[in-house]
């Protein structure tokens, strides 16, 4: 071995720009910012709900501002991306072996999408 191997430095702040798969990964990771913010919106809704009808009406009025609508649209896009990226990797994280063979990944992913549709439908029926 030689005396001085050369070490290539990696930028700690821009490394993910070098490959499309790293960009997709970062897109998946930043969905957490939207989920965090949205959860705090739910907590605010709870607080206003606890304060009474007038306070809750104020919350609804604020939600109906253009900013409120825009925020919800942005969160919707982010959470759908999160859900898809989460379900798509479930066969890797939780493989199921039946007898000798592993259950095909498509079936595991498909089952998750099916359950997602059912859960979403129930929430929409309850909430809309």
């Amino acid at each position: 071995m030689s005396g001085k191997p050369y070490i290539r430095e990696i930028s700690k702040t821009t490394w993910f720009l070098s490959q499309p798969r790293y960009k997709r990964y970062m897109a998946r990771e930043v969905t957490c910012i939207f989920i965090f913010a949205y959860t705090f919106l739910l907590i605010v809704a709870l607080a206003r709900l606890a304060q009474g009808p007038e306070a809750f009406q104020e919350f609804l009025n604020a939600l109906r501002s253009p900013l409120g609508v825009l925020f919800n649209v942005a969160v919707l896009i982010a959470t759908v991306y999160h859900s898809m990226s989460w379900f798509n990797v479930t066969p890797q994280a939780m493989p199921i072996q039946r007898g000798e063979e592993f259950v095909p990944g498509k079936i595991i992913v498909g089952a998750h999408y099916g359950a997602w549709a059912v859960v979403s439908l129930i929430i929409l029926i309850l909430g809309v």
Binding site: Q19, R21, Y22, Y25, E29, V89, P91, Q92, A93, P95
Partner: peptide, 18 residues
């Protein structure tokens, strides 16, 4: 952090990320 790149490049189709 489950980037998943390892499994995408594996020439033997091993799934280290999984």
């Amino acid at each position: 952090s489950f980037v998943g790149a390892c499994s995408e490049v594996c020439p033997k189709h091993v799934d280290p990320a999984g």
